[in-house]
Design a protein around this nucleic acid. Structure first.
Lengths: 158, 158
DNA sequence: TATTGTTATACTCTATAACTATA
DNA sequence: TATAGTTATAGAGTATAACAATA
């Protein structure tokens, strides 16, 4: 009843959304959009997008790896990763090294400032994740969700 | 082992993605992106985006409702809904009526062509959905997923 | 020949503010 | 004053093709 109440609001009767409310793609989209919106609020102080967060974390966990390896792991096309990396380099969080073995490549590393930032944002993310897990109903529900999402995503896209 | 195999490919060791692989927002994003990509392949013959599909279906189920009511129900901002509706009107699928009670408003209806198209694309969507449900492991898994997504989405965003 | 990173480009989605015409 | 729809605009995200330097 509370749902119908808020759905009505100023308008007349509620809109019938029964054709959409079990559509997997649609519901994934809505949930993802809402979660990212809240992520944005949590990370507003850092002015970091989700893709920038994940890049910093992956570079920390995989120091010295190539630009394209990190991009691939995150499902970001190399062409679109260039500006993202440039932004993080300009902000002083990431630095590029040249592997002697391959002068085309960029080996990614965090700077000291990058390490400090990443330490902080991991905490922010942990808090935010705890909030999401609470919304879901606990760790078991989270694990259940991840297991289901696993099946919707091909192996190399994880 | 198959996963590690495909993750390695041409590169050296696999990238450590353990910091991201249980992050709800990230995993939602990856799954949603993959599902929408496949949706796009299924609907290529119609040249219809997911938002256009859901608009046609909601207009059919809620004939005569206002533009903004449909937009709200789908979580689309009214400003962004204008071009979407215009496209569907130009393609002859939707027509606008003027409610005598409010000359500002547009009441949305499907045209005959719109009804025919919607009949077809509902079938295409049903087939696609069956494929997604199969990936998930059956109807029960689907219902479980929807129930979990419910908790991640505030009531008025469904 | 193939790969790394890059540029250029285009299209989609989303967001906000300000406008118009009506209410 | 407020609402329905519109316009303009800006910022992200994503996609493809083509290029230079290097392998």
């Amino acid at each position: 009843m509370a749902v119908a109440e808020s759905a009505r609001k100023k308008s007349g009767a509620a809109i019938d959304v029964s054709s959409m409310d079990k559509v997997i793609g649609y519901r994934l989209r809505r949930a993802q959009h809402y979660v990212f919106q809240q992520f944005g609020e949590s990370f507003a102080q850092y002015d970091l997008r989700p893709s920038e967060y994940s890049t910093l974390v992956l570079v920390e966990d995989n120091p010295g790896r190539r630009q394209n390896e990190i991009a691939d792991a995150l499902g970001i096309k190399k062409a679109n990763f260039v500006a993202l990396i440039r932004g993080l380099v300009e902000r002083g969080y990431i630095e590029l090294a040249q592997p002697p073995s391959d002068r085309r490549a960029h080996a990614l590393h965090l700077t000291e400032a990058g390490r400090q930032l990443t330490k902080q944002i991991r905490k922010t993310q942990d808090d935010f994740e705890a909030h999401c897990i609470e919304m879901l109903g606990g760790i078991d529900a989270r694990d259940q969700l991840i297991a289901l999402l696993d099946r919707l995503t091909p192996p190399r896209e994880r």
